[in-house]
Design a protein around this nucleic acid. Structure first.
Length: 443
RNA sequence: GACCCCAUCGUCCAGAGGUCAGGACACCAGGUUUUCAUCCUGGAAACACGGGUUCGAGUCCCGUUGGGGUCGCCA
C-alpha cells in the first residue's frame, strides 16, 4: 500500500478545458515519476451534462495527449449505492444528521457535522494551510432528493480507488478542509494534497466561456501537435529547474517534482505555444506530418496527391509552424487560383524593364532541355547578365509571377516542384496582365 | 463583507541571505539567405510599495497595495 496512486477526476462535459487537462498532466507526470499509478474517475453524476458523447470527448482528449491510465476508469454514477450506504454509516456514528437544512421545506437531507476543531494540512505546493473551526461550516452530503453530493462521492471514491495523492486545481483548497474531516469520520487515511494554481488568460483573468482557444479539441483542430501542447502545459507552473524547456516525455517524467510547482497562477501564452509547436513540427519527418497537412488542405478545398505534397513539404522545409497554416502557405502548388500580393507585385513585376526580361526568360525555359533547380538557376543568371540586370530583379519577379507572394521557399527548388508547364503558363499570364496594366496607364 | 492564497523582465520559469539578478518566448538592431522562415551576433527589459530582522534581503518577518480562490441541497 505504499504505492503512489494519483487520479484525474473530471466531470465530463462536451469540452475539456486546458486548465483541467493540465491537472491531468501533473497527476500523470507525478505518477510516472514515482512509479505509481495514474487513475481515471469520471464524475458523471450530473445527468444533464454527462452524456455519452461528453465522456467520449474527454477520453479522446486524454488519448490524444497520451495520458494513459493504469486501471479501468471508475464511473461515479455506478457508485451511488455505496455512497448512500456510507452516508447511513455516518448517520449511525453520529457524524451526520438528517434535517431540513435552512428550513427550505424540501424535506430532509443529510448534513455532515464538522468536528468543531481547527483543521490543517501540508499542501505539497502551497505549504501549511490552516482553517479555524469557526470558519468551517457543516455541509450537505445527501440532498433531499436522495442524491449524494460531490464532497461525499469524491471522498468515498478516492478511498475506493486507494488514492494517495490528490493533485487538483486551486479552486478546491476550501473543499479540502471538509474532505479531510470526511476522511477522518470515515476512518480512512487522509491523502496528501497538492493544489495547482490556475491558468489565466492573456489578460490575466480566469478563463471563461468567452475565451477562445481554451478547449483541448480546439488546439487539435487548429493543428497543434499533442506533444507540443503537453510540453507547453507541463511548463505552466512547473520547470525542471535547469532551464530546459523542450523536453521529451521521458525527460519530463524523470525531472518532475511537485517541489518545482509554482504557487502563483500562470498566464497562457499562445505565442509561446506556437513557437514550441514549430519546434516539434520541424523535428517531425515529413511522412509523419503528411496527415496533418493533408487535413488542412482538404479543409480548404484542395486535395493533392500525397507524393506531390511530400515534395512540396520538402522544399517548404520548416516554414509551416502549425498545420492550420498549410493551405495558406502552399495553395499555389496545388491550384492556379491563389491570391496575389498587390503591393509586392507593383514593386517587383510592374517595373520598367522587367517584362521583357521575364519574356526572354520564359522563352529560354520553354526550350530548356533539363528542368532542374540547378539548370534553371544557371539560365536565369545568364539571362540577367546578358540583359545587364541584377539577377535579384528577375528572381523576385519570377517568384511573384508563379506564387503571388514575396515569401516562400528557395525559388529554384520551388520552380522545379511546380514543373515546366505551370511555370511557363503563369509566367505568360503574368506578362499578359502586367502589359495590359501598363498599356492602360500609357493610354 | 468574512476566511484563505499569491506577488522576479511584457509572458513563462531560475534564484532555497552574499549573483554584474540567469534562461526561454515575444520585442529591437545587425549578419547569413534572391525573399520569407531558419540560423548567428548583439540590445532593451524585472525583484509591487513601506517598515523591520541581519554585517548583508529578491530570498526571513510585519504591514500596505494589487491580483486570485471560497463562502450552494453545483461539481
Amino acid at each position: 500500500m505504499s504505492e503512489i496512486r494519483t487520479r484525474f477526476a473530471p466531470s465530463p462535459t462536451g469540452h475539456v478545458h486546458i486548465g483541467n487537462i493540465r491537472v491531468a498532466i501533473f497527476n500523470w507526470l507525478f505518477a510516472r515519476h514515482t512509479g505509481g499509478r495514474f487513475l481515471l474517475r469520471i464524475e458523471d453524476t450530473d445527468q444533464q451534462r454527462s452524456t455519452p458523447a461528453a465522456c467520449r470527448t474527454l477520453i479522446e482528449a486524454m488519448e490524444w495527449l497520451g495520458l494513459n491510465w493504469d486501471e479501468p476508469p471508475l464511473y461515479q454514477s455506478a457508485r451511488r449505492e455505496a455512497h448512500l450506504a456510507a452516508a447511513e454509516r455516518l448517520l449511525a456514528s453520529g457524524h451526520a444528521v438528517r434535517e431540513d437544512k435552512g428550513g427550505t421545506g424540501r424535506g430532509e437531507c443529510i448534513v455532515f457535522r464538522m468536528p468543531g476543531c481547527d483543521i490543517e494540512f501540508d499542501d505539497l505546493v502551497k505549504g501549511r494551510l490552516r482553517k479555524a473551526a469557526a470558519d468551517l461550516k457543516d455541509f450537505v452530503i445527501v440532498r433531499s432528493d436522495g442524491h449524494p453530493v460531490f464532497h461525499l462521492a469524491n471522498v468515498l471514491d478516492d478511498i475506493e480507488m486507494g488514492v494517495t495523492h490528490v493533485i487538483r486545481g486551486d479552486d478546491h483548497v476550501e473543499n479540502t478542509f471538509r474532505h479531510i474531516a470526511l476522511f477522518r469520520a470515515l476512518g480512512a487515511p487522509v491523502p496528501r494534497y497538492a493544489h495547482l494554481p490556475m491558468i489565466v488568460n492573456a489578460q490575466g483573468k480566469p478563463y471563461s466561456k468567452r475565451d477562445g482557444d481554451a478547449y483541448v479539441g480546439e488546439f487539435r483542430d487548429r493543428g497543434i501537435l499533442a506533444d507540443a501542447l503537453f510540453n507547453y502545459l507541463a511548463l505552466l507552473g512547473w520547470s525542471p529547474g535547469d532551464g530546459r524547456e523542450l523536453m521529451t516525455r521521458t525527460e519530463m517524467i524523470e525531472a518532475f517534482s511537485l517541489d518545482g510547482v509554482q504557487a502563483s497562477p500562470a498566464r497562457f501564452d499562445m505565442t509561446k505555444l506556437l513557437w514550441m509547436n514549430g519546434e516539434y513540427m520541424r523535428r517531425l519527418p515529413p511522412m509523419e506530418r503528411l496527415d496533418g497537412h493533408l487535413r488542412d488542405l482538404r479543409a480548404h478545398g484542395l486535395d493533392p496527391d500525397p507524393a506531390e505534397l511530400l515534395r512540396v513539404l520538402e522544399v517548404m522545409q520548416d516554414r509551416i509552424k502549425v498545420f492550420s497554416d498549410t493551405a495558406a502557405q502552399t495553395r499555389y502548388f496545388f491550384s492556379d487560383e491563389y491570391p496575389v500580393d498587390a503591393a509586392a507585385w507593383r514593386k517587383r513585376v510592374a517595373r520598367p524593364g522587367v517584362l521583357p526580361a521575364l519574356d526572354e526568360l520564359r522563352r529560354r525555359w520553354a526550350e530548356a532541355g533539363e528542368w532542374s533547380a540547378a539548370s534553371l538557376e544557371a539560365m536565369l543568371k545568364a539571362t540577367a547578365a546578358e540583359l545587364q540586370r541584377p539577377a535579384a530583379d528577375l528572381i523576385h519577379a519570377v517568384r511573384l509571377a508563379v506564387s503571388g507572394t514575396p515569401a516562400g521557399p528557395g525559388l529554384f527548388a520551388m520552380l522545379e516542384v511546380l514543373g515546366r508547364d505551370r511555370v511557363l503558363r503563369r509566367l505568360g499570364r503574368a506578362i499578359e496582365r502586367a502589359s495590359a496594366v501598363s498599356a492602360s496607364h500609357d493610354g
